[in-house]
């Protein structure tokens, strides 16, 4: 039995990969409360060889380029998916002082013919669900920029989740036009 035939070995390998896959899917949430979850944006296709994928997946993150006024703001958008088995919640964000003064979570509400931004204390993300932060809707506000955000810049944003803890992401600065605009108030 020392020399397993090639075909059999291949079968065992496939079985092992499948098992690892099932294991990773079933147990993907438990290790994420540890420091391990400091992942860069993760692709939807988890690598089988890797340990359990982080429960929180952050995709399509970007921040708006700014005109370069005194004391200006920007907003960051992303699609945040909960790949785990427990509910999580985005509760806050932060950036280094060299980037901006503070970070808040905001939503846009329509009141009759008027619109306004309102600060919120977080958004729940159910297992398997995605939180969409998009222009005209929910967004991560970055206030009191130290310097103008120019297309091509990047900065580090730390997002804090109730379960997954702190996740650092590199955010590219882009020109953000209308595409993917939310209907204000639709998230409520």
């Amino acid at each position: 039995m020392m020399h397993t035939p090639k075909a059999a070995r291949r079968l065992i390998l496939i079985a092992a990969i499948a098992a690892a896959g099932i294991f990773a899917t079933a147990c993907s949430s438990d290790s994420d409360e540890d420091a391990e979850a400091t992942a860069a944006p993760v692709e939807a296709t988890a690598t089988l060889a890797a340990p359990a994928a982080p429960a929180i997946e952050i995709a399509d993150i970007r921040a708006r380029a700014t005109p370069g006024l005194e004391n200006e703001n920007s907003a960051a958008y992303a699609v945040i998916t909960n790949r785990g088995t427990e509910k999580d919640r985005l509760v806050s964000g932060s950036v280094d002082a060299s980037v901006a003064g503070r970070v808040e979570l905001h939503t846009t509400v329509k009141e009759g013919e008027m619109m306004r931004m309102v600060q919120v204390d977080g958004w729940d993300i159910e297992p398997g669900a995605s939180l969409e932060l998009m222009p005209g809707g929910n967004h991560v506000m970055i206030l009191e920029l130290a310097e103008q955000f120019v297309v091509g810049d990047t900065f580090t944003l730390t997002l804090v989740f109730e379960q997954a803890g702190e996740i650092e992401v590199e955010v590219p600065v882009m020109e953000i036009a209308t595409s993917g605009m939310a209907t204000p108030g639709a998230m409520n």
């Binding site: 708006r64 700014t66 005109p67 006024l69 004391n71 200006e72 703001n73 920007s74 907003a75 905001h106 846009t108 619109m115 931004m117 222009p135 005209g136 967004h139 506000m141 970055i142 206030l143 020109e175 953000i176 036009a177 209308t178 605009m181």
Partner: peptide, 12 residues
Amino acid sequence: TFCPDLCPLAMS
């Protein structure tokens, strides 16, 4: 101008 989301979106 202190509006970071809707106003720049409308203007762009």
